[in-house]
Computed example of a mutant assay.
Amino acid sequence: MTDYARRALVASPTAPAREAAAKLADAWDWVQPDEADVVIALGGDGFMLQTLHAMLHRRQLAVPVFGMNLGTVGFLMNEWRPHGLDDRLARARPFRVAPLQMTATGVDGRVHTLPAINEVSLLRETRQTAKLEVTINDRIVMAELACDGILVATPAGSTAYNLSAQGPILPLGSALVALTPISPFRPRRWRGAILPDRTRVSLKVLEPAKRPVSAVADQREVRDVARVDVALDRARELTLLFDPEHALDDRITMEQFAA
């Protein structure tokens, strides 16, 4: 059991999250996120990703986040309940997630380095099919993939965009990442790969002038890329807290049986 004495409260700008924050406002003497032992996040999955990215930016890697769902899906969140927070925090199970690091080189030669907690995705910018060269650990494994795009997903993100693209659900603690094509045209039957999370993935854009491609790290986009390198960033591990009966690994397991 852990006593989180200094608590920060952050909320999505939506009306339900703001109303929930108002209910909690007088319950504790809240501190700023950069002074906290734990952050309470109110909102949906998108707001949770926003909160985690802010913590990466502030280098608050050791501060756990306990989210409560005031959004739509809330896969990364616990159930919203305004009472019993002391007990819930004391009993919460930690889950550690290491983000991907995307290094995107533009056709102009500029290099952009961004973290991604869910996935890194490459997407065609026009009606022209994207053509990509796929390299794994410095070995070209596919000389030309014609597709709408491709993504690299973590276990935490495997039930998001990756699942919508028919990618596999990855159990937490599996030390795996998913490499999933988006509407592959050639080779038509290739459905992706499951790779050890120590794998380095490099994606080269073929014919970038004719077939421009953008790269997206979670919600941040870099347009007109020539090459994208993706690897797990173990030095920037984050911690999520979950109620024992609502743990993320259990949810990922049950998602595989959803209709």
Rank of each mutant, 00 (worst) to 15 (best):
76 L>D: 03
163 L>N: 03
5 A>L: 11
179 L>V: 05
208 P>Y: 03
91 R>A: 15
259 A>P: 10
86 D>F: 02
78 N>W: 07
192 G>T: 13
168 P>Y: 01
181 P>A: 10
216 V>K: 03
219 Q>S: 08
190 W>A: 12
142 M>G: 10
243 D>M: 04
166 Q>F: 08
237 E>H: 00
221 E>Y: 00
31 V>G: 01
203 L>A: 04
51 T>I: 12
72 T>H: 15
226 A>Y: 10
175 A>E: 15
102 M>Y: 00
98 A>C: 14
12 S>E: 09
228 V>T: 02
235 A>S: 15
145 L>Y: 06
99 P>K: 01
227 R>T: 08
210 K>R: 12
204 K>E: 05
33 P>C: 08
53 H>T: 05
166 Q>R: 15
19 E>R: 15
81 R>Y: 05
101 Q>G: 03
60 Q>C: 07
171 P>K: 01
116 A>F: 01
151 L>H: 05
122 L>R: 07
13 P>H: 04
74 G>C: 11
54 A>D: 14
190 W>L: 12
16 P>D: 13
44 G>Y: 10
156 A>Y: 00
3 D>R: 11
224 D>L: 15
162 N>K: 00
55 M>E: 01
27 A>S: 14
229 D>I: 06
202 S>P: 00
226 A>H: 13
216 V>H: 06
11 A>L: 02
37 D>S: 08
221 E>K: 06
130 A>G: 10
92 A>C: 10
214 S>F: 04
170 L>G: 03
20 A>L: 04
33 P>R: 11
